[in-house]
Design a protein around this nucleic acid. Sequence first.
DNA 1: CGTGTTTGACCCGCGC
DNA 2: GCGCGGGTCAAACACG
Length: 374
Amino acid sequence: MNEMKENNNISSVCTNSMEKREEKKELTRSTTLKTENFNMANTSFITPPPPPPATTTSDIDQMPSVFALSTTATPPPPLNSIFDMMPFDIIGGDQKAGSLGFTDLLDINQDFGAAASLFDWFAQNPIVGSQQQQTFVPSPASTLPETSEVLNNPATPNSSASISSSSNEAGNDAFQQVKTGDQEEEQDHDKTKKQLKPKKKNQKRQREPRFAFMTKSEVDHLDDGFRWRKYGQKAVKNSPYPRSYYRCTSAGCGVKKRVERSSDDSSIVVTTYEGQHIHPSPLTPRGSIGILSDSTGFGAATSSFVIPQTQYQQHAYLYSSSPSLNINTTSNTSFSPTFSFHQRRSDSPASLLRDHGLLQDIVPSQMRKEPKEE
DNA sequence: CGTGTTTGACCCGCGC
DNA sequence: GCGCGGGTCAAACACG
């Protein structure tokens, strides 16, 4: 019920209350936000994504990648749930590509298939730390990004679930440090702002390992099965879209999430998770969705992934998952999400990589650079 | 009343 | 040191 409330929250906020608030906001306009953009974003959210019309390859890119599923036995979740997204056949356009399994495309398929979720998979295949870099970053010129942010680049093109991730400075045991980091951070949160002030000056604030992915979606805040509380919103430089900051509402769980819309492709939402849930998803027992979630808290963080490529492969790909296809409301423990694969035609890869804001965090600097002609 | 959002102010790190 | 930008806080507010 709460989930439903939360799920409906966006739409309701966007319709009634948001309009009221907007009126008020007109008076107390913040310099932080650009109103037009804010309204624009909301407007687009209000409109439910239209059902997929008969697709032709030509108009695929203009089509929304989010629409309600009607194939599930359980009541269809709200539209802003990422489980509703079936971008695979829309984005992909190519039905063959759409039918391609994720396992057909990725050489990590076995591990991922066994994992209950992406995050689970990453837990099993930690992508942070030096070991990871050896495994996933084949980069020849491979100077690891000085930012300590790590991207699990594919060993071979076309065969990677390149979901960007970053870690804190202490990167090597980032996952283990999540909890300690949470505790420390939680203590900090308990302090007041003024108490924060005299706080450790020489001690750098530790960053949680981050996990970012792009979702082609009309809604900013995707329902990933967890309850989030928005605690901030900032305008993103060089982007008309604001960035929203969310924190997991579960007590003691310090997981944060940042959501921003790509300035280059407004249909792409960049979601960055920071930290690790210390509790199961509140939605776990709920129908088929729950099996996507796990205690690691990254359940069902699957939708479509715009994959920044290495310098080998100077294209951005959009991976899309269609979990519901394989799940079918059964407790299929051997859930293996089906990913489709589509090379975007309209978006220049460079433009995707050039995206501002969070992309600067999640994409290693070497990848943000305009690729030199090979 | 509990929960979540909004938003101005503040903190902090970083580059110059 | 200063300015900028990212990130966070917390009071005020909205909503069910």
